[in-house]
Amino acid sequence: MRKTSITGWLLASPLSLILLVFLAAPIAMIVVVSFWGATEWAIYPAFEFENYEFLLTSSVTSRVFLNTFKYAAITWACTLVIGFTVAYYLAFHIRTLTWQIVLFLLCTIPFLTSNIIRMISWIPFLGRNGLANSALISWGVIDEPVEWLLFSDFSVILAFVHLYTLFMVVPIFNTMMRIDKSLIEAAADAGASGWQTLWQVIVPLTKPGIMIGTIFVLALVMGDFITVRFMSGSQSANVGRMIQNDIALLQYPSASATAVILLVTVLLLIGTLLRFVDIRKEL
């Protein structure tokens, strides 16, 4: 008895240690620093609420958080629709496993380059004199270049969707592959139409995958700063950029406070989502 319990502890300890050192400790440090004070060139230990007070009372914070939610919500909706469709096609319309694997790998090819490059390559494409505008003009769709294609919320969300759809495809595809095909046959035998099968059988059974994809996309979009900076031409702000600005100006305590609030918000959001779906079924 005693021996197995020691073995158990030993087996669990590497992971706990790694989590403790690389996850719990840094977060604890961020929380501690968020109460510190800062001068222009240094930070000093203190226990003050000035950082939070400024954050929670400034109108910029609420605007920036709203903007962050807006990006997250729209990106989530777009990636969900595209991701679900792609996964559905792969799982139910492609018959052989070989082709499923081939097509799935095809989806991942763009991810062989860095995401900065995938993002920046949109800029010449969407620009005033870019490919999109010149094509539209030569087709006679528009007379003058469309300005909102680049350095706008549109371009930010486009880049997000492009960057993160795969994170939705993978978990959804994974759950769909585990759906027992006999359930679909049973639905068909019972006289369900294609839509009914989709809505009443496949979607409910895919929920854990959708939820995992959602967590990925939300966490990535809410924590992003570089996509927003490049694709909005620095004209829009989200929480990540706010933190980045603070760090650049040596305001670590203020950056930590913003990070803590962002962390709490994201955790609350994910906590709420998990109330609806039990992703443990998936694991």
Partner: peptide, 24 residues
């Protein structure tokens, strides 16, 4: 800014070059 005067803001040298060279 609210009236749409600016196309973008730049932070690094290359960004300023690209904005100008592309005619943005």
């Amino acid at each position: 800014k609210k009236a749409g005067q600016f196309r973008a803001f730049w932070k690094s040298f290359d960004e300023s070059v690209n904005l100008m060279a592309s005619g943005e």
